[in-house]
Amino acid sequence: MKKIYVKEEWCLGCHLCEFECAYANSGIGNIVLALKDKEIDPNVKVLSDGKITFAVSCRHCDEPLCISACISGALSKDETGAVMVDKSKCVGCGSCVMVCPYGAVRITKEGTANKCQLCMNNSCGEPLCVKKCPNGAIVYEEK
């Protein structure tokens, strides 16, 4: 399946992916209206080991521990292999957060799980973080 991969040697640490992610998932058609004066809670996070920066989002694992631990069926794989979230089923127990070795699933302020769904659950149709990365540090491809 097509997944998001990170070429950390190209990451500038600009955090633009975080803002584009928040915009993509806002449901609002204008980036200013979507983000101005708002605290963002994106599905991709730029982290650093002190020397180098890298963008972390869900890896859509072949055998995802988050799904193994999900008691509500809110997390499941779609037909392409992407790990998707059904918020209406989530009870917010946090089992997915307890097991994800990437720290890529979180419980939002709404009390339900959220994570990168490859922009398949919004109107972008392809990951906006990839499209807007100014240095090609995030790619979306088949491997």
Binding site: L65, G94, M98, C100, P101, G103
Partner: peptide, 9 residues
């Protein structure tokens, strides 16, 4: 419990 899975790993 943010990113607790890393400790679990």
């Amino acid at each position: 419990s943010t990113r607790a899975g890393i400790l679990t790993d």
